[in-house]
Design a protein around this nucleic acid. Sequence first.
DNA 1: GCGAGCATGTAAACAGTTACATGATTCC
DNA 2: GGAATCATGTAACTGTTTACATGCTCGC
Lengths: 185, 185
Amino acid sequence: MNILSYAILGLIDKERITGYDLTKRFNASVADFWSANQSQIYPELKKLVQARLIEYEVVIQGEVLEKKLYSITAEGQEVLKKWMLEEDPALPQSKDVFKLRIYLAEQLTKEQLLDKLLKRQQQCVNLLNRYQSKFKDYTDLPVPPVQLGDYILLKGAMAQLEAQLGWLEESINYIETLPNGQTEK
Amino acid sequence: MNILSYAILGLIDKERITGYDLTKRFNASVADFWSANQSQIYPELKKLVQARLIEYEVVIQGEVLEKKLYSITAEGQEVLKKWMLEEDPALPQSKDVFKLRIYLAEQLTKEQLLDKLLKRQQQCVNLLNRYQSKFKDYTDLPVPPVQLGDYILLKGAMAQLEAQLGWLEESINYIETLPNGQTEK
DNA sequence: GCGAGCATGTAAACAGTTACATGATTCC
DNA sequence: GGAATCATGTAACTGTTTACATGCTCGC
């Protein structure tokens, strides 16, 4: 059982769902901390059915299109609850090409470096806007249990982006004070 | 050419280095935004030599131990500079088991959830302390070009951790106000 | 009727992790 | 002499991405 299979188990426990919607879910709400492609999800669902941790009901969409609505089994719920109580691993390290390039800043001129930072700033602003508009949907507090995690994590993602924006602002200011040629080797 | 090979190229350009030290470097200074195992680095070095982007000199350590000191070639420098100017990809998504479990918060009792958050808080404090002591080494500003990226990224990593700590604090307070049973499904 | 999106899957290639394997050096 | 660390590499496995492959449905 890899982590992905527990993620799938947890999402199916939230609601009965098809493989297709599960994939979309991974690339929407869960995207900030987990992701998976279709080509990973379908084989994983198959394995979980074989392990009797989930089961499915075939539902007819329209005239003939068969879709599989998955739900968690009692055994699946047990396995999930047990996994939830395991110790969390160390803080994850993300791989970030932008940061890698900043680390190699001496390869760039002052202008090229500033350009990179400004573009990242724009990316952060765009994502923060999306998160903020999603946040507006949480009007009635306290949020119900099934949405609690989503709500807390959304706040976390926004806090992270705001911090990154503050850092970018500060770094841009710092680099602008450097004389030309003081970034290159 | 995968990203790892550019990372290696950039690090070798900073200083002549052995595969062994390169590995350590990946798991120390670069760890916040890139990582690699020995078993990935050695084959990659071989490929880069074959592509004539790096070359090595055999140095004798002690009596007989041969170590390879790698340095970048002119062609390697060109390839690296070109890559540095490519467009950065979208904001990266890290995979974070802790956050995944928080998303599935309805599986946990209030106490279990708070316990998770408190443990993460401790992890953040520990890492922040390490970063802060590393930060103290930068006494004479402005930093020289080869250290500029390192310096800026260190500040970024600290800002991210501080933001995460703020979020954890806030989340713990929020959850504590919820009545028992208001986290579980 | 057509195009976007719904729906399920497989194959091949690539990236990354864990484990194995060997031997020298340095410091105590 | 022994232990930690320096130093280089390979093998097997797992995880992830990209591309392929097929067909239906819904709204215009």
